[in-house]
Amino acid sequence: MRRPALLYLIAAAALLGLTALAFAVGRYPISPADLWGVLSGDAPARIQSVVFQVRGPRVMSAIVVGAALAAAGSAYQGMFRNPLVSPDILGVSTGAALGAALAIFFSVNTFVVQLCAFAGGLAAVGMVYWIGSRLRRHDPLLALVLTGVVIGTLLGSAIALLKYLADPYNQLPAITYWLLGSLASVAPHDLMAAAALTLLGLAPMLLLRWRINVLALPDDEARSLGVDTARLRTLVIAAATLVTAAAVAISGIIGWVGLLIPHAARLLIGPDFGRLLPLAMLLGAVFLLAVDTLSRTLSSVEVPPGVLTALIGTPFFLWLFALARRSW
C-alpha cells in the first residue's frame, strides 16, 4: 500500500496551486501581489470584482463539478466491479441532456433549464433502476447496465429529434452548446445549490465506504457476510445519481472526468473505497480546473471543456487500459 497521506497532500497542494493560477490567468490577468491583496482584503474594487464575480464562480464550479463527477465514478466503478464504468452508465447524463434540451426547446430561462436537467437525470436513472430491478431472471448488475444502455440510446434519439425540430438559429446552438458542457455561465447561486446537493450525495458514500467495498465481492458472498446488497446498491445509485445530476445541471455534459479520474486514483492508492474517494475527488477537481483554465486561455475563442477532456482523456485512458489491470 502506498502512503495515502502523502498522496492526499500532493493532490491538495496541486489543487491549491492550480486554484491560485486559475484566478491569476485569463483575459484580465491578475498578478500574484493583487491576488494576495484580494485575500487580505485591500485590492482595488475592479480586481475584487474579477475575482469574486467573474472568475470565482467558474473556478469553484470546476472544483465542485470535477470532484462530484469523480466521486460518482468511483462509487459506480466499485459497485459494478468494472473500471470502465462511468457515472453515465445508468443514463444520468443523457437524461439530464434531454431535460435541458426540452427546456431550451420550450424557451424557458436558465434556472428552469438547470432544474429540468437535474430532474431529467434523476428521472432517467429512476426509470432504468425501476426497469432493471424488475428483470429478475438476470444478474441484477447486468440487468441494470443493459437497461441503462438501452434507455440511454432511446433518450439520445429523443435529443436528436429535439435538435432536428429546434429553431436552427436560436435553440439549436443553445442545445449544442449545453451538450458540449461549459462552466462559463455558472452563477454563484447555481453553484451553491449544486455544491449543497453534491454534499448531500457524498454523505452516504462516506458513511457507507466500508460496506461499498463489500459490493466488490460476488453478490452471494457479500450477502452471506451479512450485507444487504440490494439496498446498498440502491443507496449508492441514488447518491451517485444525485451528485452527478447536480454537477451536470450546472455544467452540461463534460465527459471523461468520471471515468478517467477514479481509475487513475485507484492505480495510485488502491481500491479501498474509503481511501479512494477523497483522492479521486481531489484529482477530479484538479483535472477539471486545469482543463477549464486551459479552455478559457488557450485561444481567444473558448474551447469547450468536454472537447478538451476527451482530447486528454482518450490517449490517457488507452494508456491506462494497456497497463495491467489491477485486481479489485
Binding site: P218, D220, E221, R223, S224, V227, D228, T229, S327, W328
Partner: peptide
C-alpha cells in the same frame, strides 16, 4: 428472512478475498 439477516456462515467452493487487504 433475507440472506443477510440469517446468522449462517457460508464457505463457497472458491471464496473471494479482498486482494488489496
Amino acid at each position: 428472512v433475507p440472506a443477510h439477516l440469517r446468522s449462517c456462515g457460508y464457505v463457497f467452493q472458491e471464496s473471494s478475498l479482498f486482494a488489496h487487504l
